[in-house]
Amino acid sequence: MSDHEIAAVQEHSGHVVHRDDEGSKMGMWLFLFTELLLFGGLFLLYGGYRFEYSEGFKAAAADMNVFIGMINTVILLTSSLAVALSIAALQENKKTLSMGLLWFTQVCGLAFLVNKYFEWSHEIHNGIYPGGPALENMSNGEVIYFGLYYTMTGLHGLHVIVGMIFIGFVMVFIQRDKITSTNYQKLENAGLYWHLVDIIWIFLFPLFYLLH
């Protein structure tokens, strides 16, 4: 019952804001479900079209640069580790270490995006983009493959950016001691979001790069 009393989170204007870490975490998890389903629709399309155009998908996937994809996978996995460690560091009151790890995460996010930029511009340079000259001569399967490739990695890239902004806000809060060793739920939520970005990439990577 004391649990319920703590849980009485009310924030009317001018009132003391109570905290409910458990509720806040629950809200974040529910939001992550919605993100999974957002991508779920695209994965469903991928599955359907892979079944329909397996030859075209194989041909298109052979063109992808596995090396850059792998580098990006390593970058994201490392950054996820850094976020997890930064939470542990903050819990032990090591603010500087925590901030350092979050900075490292931001650099990783940026590196991921830069890689993605080079990858995309390489494809676009070769005329492989929706309506592009090279794509027009390709089979339906390849057209759909690249349509999905741009949509899914693009949407994922957008999530990387949102994650970085989210972590950026959290860093400001840590700097101002709004997030502390006893009040770190916002950091944990940012971490959860970042792990989601990571997990989605872990599925995108094999689907677009490794399955020939």
Binding site: L45, G141, V143
Partner: peptide, 12 residues
């Protein structure tokens, strides 16, 4: 953009 996923002309 005409990504093709729902466009029958492009195989969608």
């Amino acid at each position: 953009l005409g990504i093709g996923v729902f466009d029958p002309a492009l195989g969608g």
